[in-house]
């Protein structure tokens, strides 16, 4: 189910996500001090390359990491193999990526800039 390439990818994406998760949580807790509205969030994120890059990387890492994890689980628990397993892994990866990229696009694209 996992060869060395997938194993490495899953570890590397986990490494990537450690600072991203921490950054996400710290900024969230910091930003909600004294209340927060959608407009305030969008005013900071729209047109921001930094936040686009931050969450873009987050989405990419999470999509890869989650797809590989679910691949191992579905192979062991559901007994999936071969083409079915490959299709499921790619399906999960592309679905997560699409949903994530859509969300990142929605909060970072356009805006006052």
């Amino acid at each position: 189910m996992l060869d060395v390439r997938l194993y490495l990818l899953q570890r590397l994406t986990a490494l990537m996500m450690i600072p991203l998760v921490l950054g996400h949580l710290v900024v969230m807790v910091y930003a909600v001090q004294g209340g927060l509205t959608a407009a305030e969030i969008l005013s900071r994120t729209q047109g921001s390359l930094v936040w686009g890059g931050f969450y873009g990387a987050f989405v990419l890492a999470a999509s890869i990491h989650g797809a590989i994890g679910l691949r191992a689980i579905s192979a062991e628990v559901l007994g999936l193999r071969g083409v079915g397993l490959t299709a499921l892994s790619w399906g999960v990866f592309l679905t997560l990526l699409l949903l994530g990229v859509r969300a990142v696009y929605a909060v970072t694209a356009g805006g006052p800039a």
Partner: peptide, 9 residues
């Protein structure tokens, strides 16, 4: 040991 059924499982 790096193959599909290898140590990484």
């Amino acid at each position: 040991v790096s193959s599909e059924g290898g140590c990484h499982n």
